[in-house]
């Protein structure tokens, strides 16, 4: 299994993107060029535009200004299935019917390849099996969604995105419903997709220490604009935490990885 990672494929890139809902402008001229084959982490307070940015990259939210470009073309000009073969997006809190079985859910990830009226071929079955194994839900394939725990269900959704078999993976807070062990397992899985397959990953995370630990690059958003962009060491500083998150903290090296780790101050309890 030492096959070299495939050459980096086209990645959706944002150039001066303006987007919003109704009258509300959520993104105000955002640039983001994810590095192919690397893991980019979006951080920022609630409402800073992380999810919207991810959804413009996945062509789910249209841009009102600026452009999202995929392989040299405006992403809006691509046929939908062609985008979906290149970019997989897992939204926050996705919804599906409880009666659906995991296998049937994951199968929807093959929709861009199979089409509305096509039949699954061996290759599709392999992609599904591979995705379910990677997400750790292969033993749950015949279970109904409403029989799963929150963590199992979230992993089933991850398997759906992996089954799309895209060179770019966009994940919006994929660890939300997971306990800490499953959070780490999922981030390790995502990390492996980068390292072994050269998948480009953009992931929204709330846990800054996890972002620091797993990301190659961290992009901080605040009020619809990028306020910091660089390695975890460059971005996760006490100054940024104060300005963007309004949190006083010290940043120390993670004793395991040496990456920056932030520890909030001001909550010292007097020893009883």
């Amino acid at each position: 299994m030492t096959a070299p990672p495939p050459p980096p494929a086209a990645v959706p890139t944002a150039h001066g993107v303006v987007a919003g809902y109704g009258r509300r402008r959520v993104l105000d001229g955002v640039d983001l060029v994810p590095e192919p084959g690397r893991l980019t982490c979006l951080v920022g307070p609630n409402g800073s535009g992380k999810s919207t940015l991810l959804q413009t990259l996945g062509r789910v939210v249209p841009t009102r200004g600026g452009r999202v470009v995929l392989d040299g073309r405006d992403i809006a000009d691509w046929p939908g299935p062609q985008v979906a073969r290149r970019v997989a997006l897992l939204t926050q809190d996705p919804q599906g019917p409880g009666g659906l079985r995991v296998r049937e859910l994951v199968e929807q990830g093959r929709h861009p390849w199979v089409g509305a009226f096509g039949a699954l071929r061996r290759h599709d079955d392999e992609a599904m099996a591979d995705a379910m194994t990677a997400a750790g839900v292969d033993h749950l394939a015949d279970r109904r969604l409403d029989e799963l725990s929150g963590g199992e269900r979230q992993r089933a959704w991850i398997a759906l995105a992996l089954a799309q078999d895209t060179p770019t993976l966009l994940l919006d807070e994929p660890t939300t419903f997971l306990d800490v062990a499953h959070q780490l397992e999922l981030l390790r899985l995502v990390r492996r997709r980068c390292d072994e397959r050269g998948t480009t990953v953009v992931v929204v995370l709330h846990d800054l220490n996890q972002a620091a630990r797993f990301a190659d690059r961290v992009v901080a958003l605040h009020r619809g604009a990028v306020v910091a962009d660089g390695t975890p060491e460059q971005v996760l500083t006490p100054g940024l935490l104060r300005e963007v998150f309004h949190v006083e903290a010290v940043v120390v090296p993670d004793p395991v990885t040496g990456r920056p780790m932030f520890v909030p101050t001001g909550d010292r309890r007097d020893d009883a």
Partner: peptide
């Protein structure tokens, strides 16, 4: 009966349907 594939897809929410390539 032929629309079953689309019907399956439409059981998911709109952002997912869009990200899987269908308006």
């Amino acid at each position: 009966l032929l629309s079953a594939g689309l019907v399956n897809l439409l059981q998911l929410d709109d952002p997912l349907v869009t990200s899987l390539g269908r308006p």
